[in-house]
Design a protein around this nucleic acid. Structure first.
Length: 744
DNA sequence: GCCCGCGTCTGA
DNA sequence: CAGACGCGGGCA
């Protein structure tokens, strides 16, 4: 009856408020976490009181499903169709703000509302009673015998936080036996603890760092935004090593001080132990950690903890954006340029952009943080939609690494090798000084292409338009798009010639072999996601590099993810041109971001760093931007090019993914759709001919691209078109991914 | 998303 | 002819 319409920038955000008098509801509208856009009306037994947001169990067909009361029931539904709510569930209700967010995201991403609700209720169950667990704390007395391992353990335990034996051993990187030894020695004591709510008991003023003037200024502005309860958006752009994390943690501290909660989003949380450690040090306790590998029980504790308000800080992957925060005071999106914020499955959404919307609904500032912002965020900052804060210098007087462009045409490596003499010499000098070097190549495996020298046959993926990559360590040929793999055959499948198969081009495994031959005395480590499997072993490898147990690192983009290597002084980029040759309109932007991040790993410690980028095109704008540390000029040029081409964020771009188990079905439907697109529409449809296909989770995917001027409501246009378009056979799925700018 | 019913296929 | 399997519709 009384609908409050909250307009934020456009009419996209509608927040429906409850009527001011609780009417005795006879029926309720219930949204269910299944692939349905519709909600259903159920009758409400007189003894159940279920205001909007309540969790209820309802019958759906033959099953009983837990859903959420979304509002009053639809009186138009004939009484004979109504089924009754079975029971109300003992769970904290979903607040108005989160329900409005679910509706908004579903409408914007063209996803069924139930699929969005599903994300918001993952973890919505009672964690049950907590049984006391045993933990160890430091007693304060010195051990009888001090070893480096023991010293590390006691340093870790000196904060007084009780930890389980295994957690403490892992945190100090020692074997569990060391802990038992210290307990026997009386330096550690076993205590029984009842687990506090996760992410609670945090102290905003515990580990306050010294801030530079520039850091303190930005921190003060962000803190004011937290206090003001405005849904403002901020872009904090600071070069690698400028201390961005300290700045946003001060804003997080302000949220804690004012009694509110904080959410820190990270693109790949399994790799970013560093941020968790820093939050723990800064606030004297661990935040809630939310990502796909967190156990169901921990999930439940964090979900209920955020709903009750006891969990004060959550550090999480994109789905943490749908947690039921009671009073959210700030959202931080760290590494905001990272493509990991994009969810490719239904609902297809970009967490950075959805964060902006949730921030507005929650009246909380959103802080986007990066050394290499996305073009979208740069444009939004330039246009004044986001406030732009710059940290142009490294913290503590450290300098940016000096970047050298190594022209591969003038100084090529010997045939069959990829490290040019000049880079080899620089690595040798670095190692001789006892410093650490990194050779970066963003390509897994041994060689990206295998061909038969006898007949010219090339090994291609049967499902995708891609070559198979040889993985010599695993003795396989693998497709990096769909995961197809086969053993390396002894002979050519086409002409049966043996011993004529040739590996073409380098991958990290091949660079490892080359480096091992060139620098036989160096301790090598390869950091590649297919060789280092599982979050724990990745963390262990990163720690070994951090501790200088490795001299020369050979790595893929795994090494660019938020880790500091204090001993690293030289970064060599083996193929700077990789990624620039594609037709992806974001190729230059992505390559710049990647190479700036990886060269920025050098010189974060006491010794100044250097970067050497091997390239065949030293005059390319990306190379010049790296060398001159002139991101501003690069961004300006890229933004102009985007504006001319009407690409996001100037034009609207949507992709529709048609997927089916059979490739021909997907293609036929994609064509049928394309033909039905009206010529008069204020947008152009591209594909499917020029669209790449791939196989993902057993389904062939065809992409259609829709390009429009920014004045078009793309989700609306697609909805209207699909209502008229040929209906998809049920075995064909259609995802939609709308580039988000319209809500700003 | 999940269940069910239906049509079709397969093997004895 | 029983049982398996894939597809499509409905779900209040």
């Amino acid at each position: 009856m009384w609908i409050a319409i909250v307009t934020v920038g456009s009419d996209f955000l509608r927040l429906s408020a409850a009527p001011d008098l609780p009417m005795p509801a006879e029926s309720v509208e219930v949204l269910l976490p299944v692939a349905l856009d519709r909600s259903f009306t159920y009758s409400l037994p007189e003894d159940i009181i279920a205001p909007p947001g309540s969790f209820v169990e309802v019958p759906l067909g033959p099953r009983a499903v837990a859903g959420v009361v979304w509002g009053p029931g639809d009186p138009e539904v004939p009484a004979g169709k109504l089924k009754a709510v079975r029971q109300k569930l003992e769970l904290p209700p979903l607040g108005d703000e989160l329900r409005a967010f679910v509706d908004w995201v579903a409408r914007y991403t063209l996803a069924p509302r139930g699929m969005v609700l599903r994300i918001a209720v993952r973890g919505a169950r009672n964690p049950g009673d907590e049984t006391p667990r045993s933990a160890v704390i430091a007693t304060g007395s010195a051990p009888g015998r001090a070893t480096p391992a023991r010293t590390r353990v006691l340093a870790t335990a000196s904060d007084g936080v009780p930890r389980s034996k295994s957690d403490l051993a892992r945190a100090a990187a020692v074997s569990p036996g060391v802990i038992d030894g210290l307990v026997a020695d009386g330096a550690l004591r076993i205590v029984e603890v009842i687990a506090e709510p996760i992410g609670s008991g945090l102290q905003p003023d515990l580990g306050r760092p010294e801030l530079s003037e520039a850091q303190a200024d930005i921190a003060a502005l962000l803190q004011a935004a937290v206090r003001d309860r405005t849904g403002s958006t901020h872009l904090v752009e600071g070069v690698t090593g400028s201390g961005k994390t300290e700045v946003y943690l001060e804003a997080v501290a302000e949220a804690l001080r004012t009694g509110r909660q904080a959410l820190i989003l990270l693109p790949e949380i399994a790799l970013t132990q560093a941020v968790l450690d820093r939050v723990t040090r800064r606030f004297g306790g661990a935040p809630g950690e939310w990502h796909s590998t967190v156990s169901a029980k921990r999930r439940a504790r964090i979900w209920t903890g955020t709903a009750s308000g006891e969990t004060r800080i959550v550090v999480g992957a994109r789905s943490a954006l749908f947690l039921p925060f009671r009073d959210l005071g700030i959202i931080v999106v760290d590494e905001e340029h990272d493509a990991g914020f994009k969810q490719e499955d239904v609902p297809v959404y970009h967490a950075r952009d959805m964060a902006v919307v949730r921030g507005k609904l929650a009246e909380a500032p959103v802080v986007l943080v990066s050394a290499t912002p996305s073009l979208e965020s740069r444009v939004n900052a330039d246009a004044g939609r986001y406030r732009h804060h710059l940290l142009p210098e490294r913290f503590g007087g450290r300098t940016m690494p000096e970047i050298e462009l190594l022209d591969l045409r003038a100084d090529p490596p010997p045939p069959g090798r990829w490290i040019a003499p000049r880079l080899e010499e620089q690595v040798r000098d670095t190692l001789a000084r006892g410093e650490q070097a990194l050779l970066f190549l963003n390509r897994r495996g041994f060689a990206p292409l295998t061909l038969c020298r006898a007949c010219g046959h090339r090994f291609a993926c049967p499902n995708c338009s891609a070559w198979l990559v040889e993985h010599r360590f695993r003795r396989q040929l693998a497709c990096h798009h769909c995961g197809h793999h086969e053993p390396v055959p002894p002979a050519c499948p086409k002409c049966s010639t043996t011993d004529k198969l040739a590996a073409v081009g380098p991958g990290v495994e091949r660079i490892r072999d080359e480096a091992a031959a060139l620098f036989p005395e160096a301790r090598l480590a390869v950091l590649s996601s297919d060789l280092v499997i599982g979050a724990d072993s990745i963390r262990a490898e990163l720690k070994a590099v951090e501790d200088h147990a490795v001299d020369l690192v050979i790595g893929t983009q795994l090494v660019t993810k938020g880790h500091n290597f204090p001993h690293l002084t030289l970064v060599g980029v083996v193929d700077g041109d990789l990624g620039l040759g594609t037709s992806d309109p974001r190729a230059a932007e992505r390559t710049f971001q990647l190479l700036e991040q990886v060269t920025g790993r050098a010189g974060r410690g006491a010794i100044a760093g250097r970067g050497i980028v091997q390239t065949t095109d030293p005059l390319h704008p990306v190379m010049q931007a790296l060398k001159n540390h002139d991101a501003a000029a690069f961004y300006a040029a890229e933004i102009d090019a985007r504006a001319d081409a009407m690409l996001p964020p100037f034009g609207r771009l949507a992709s529709l993914v048609v997927s089916a188990p059979v490739r021909n079905d997907a293609e036929a439907y994609a064509r049928a759709l394309a033909q039905s697109f009206p010529a008069s529409a204020p947008a152009r449809l591209l594909g499917p001919a020029e669209a790449p296909i791939s196989l993902l989770r057993g389904r062939h995917r065809f992409r259609l691209l829709l390009r429009a001027d920014r004045t078009v409501d793309v989700p609306g246009l697609i909805r209207a078109w699909l209502a008229e378009a040929p209906r998809a056979p049920a075995s064909i799925g259609l995802h939609t991914d709308v580039d988000p700018v319209s809500f700003l």
